[in-house]
């Protein structure tokens, strides 16, 4: 009995700690030009995991709109809606890339690029790809961890 209560308390504390370190979508601080200085998780992202998010249709699906030469052998068919991401880390700082991935419209007003870390303010939001109505706040398209992983991966895209 005692032990059960104890572990319940520990689990709750663990969850609380993780949530406290994570920046919620509504709390993200965007700079004047859309950059986000602070890591959303307080920890460095994992570039290998980010590479999967970028290429996966059910996750970031970034390649629907962007070509990434380094990825083409593993993930075929890249779109040409946005600029190729080769050399992205030469053009942008980590904070700028975090801002673009979290909510590109803060950097590029009216951009066609979806906002991956935003939960409210949509017109006729749906439940995933079901076509059925959903209530806001929606789960963000990517989690804080996935955003950081994608940013870590983008930081590896250099020309040299």
């Amino acid at each position: 009995m005692n032990r059960a209560i104890l572990s319940a308390v520990c689990v709750a504390a663990g969850v609380g700690a993780a949530a406290a370190a994570e920046v919620a979508p509504k709390d993200v601080q965007y700079g004047e030009y859309g950059a986000v200085e602070q890591s959303l998780t307080g920890q460095p992202g994992d570039a290998a995991a980010g590479r999967k998010v970028v290429g996966s249709k059910s996750l970031g699906n970034c390649v629907a709109c962007h070509k990434i030469s380094e990825l083409i052998d593993d993930v075929p068919f890249h779109g040409e809606i946005g600029p190729p991401l080769d050399g992205a880390a030469d053009r942008w700082s980590e904070a700028q890339l975090r801002g673009i991935v979290a909510n590109a419209k803060m950097t590029f007003p009216e951009s066609m690029m979806p906002s991956f870390y935003k939960t409210t303010g949509y017109i006729r939001p749906g439940k995933g790809f079901t076509g059925k109505a959903a209530q806001e706040p929606l789960p963000p398209l990517l989690t804080a961890q996935q955003i950081e992983d994608v940013v870590a991966y983008l930081m590896t895209l250099k020309y040299e």
Partner: peptide, 25 residues
Amino acid sequence: YTRTGQLELSCANCHEDHYGDMIRA
């Protein structure tokens, strides 16, 4: 011209601004 859904895309985003482009395959 209304941008709907969580992807915030209108018909015009794809079919007016980007016809001729590839979107994935």
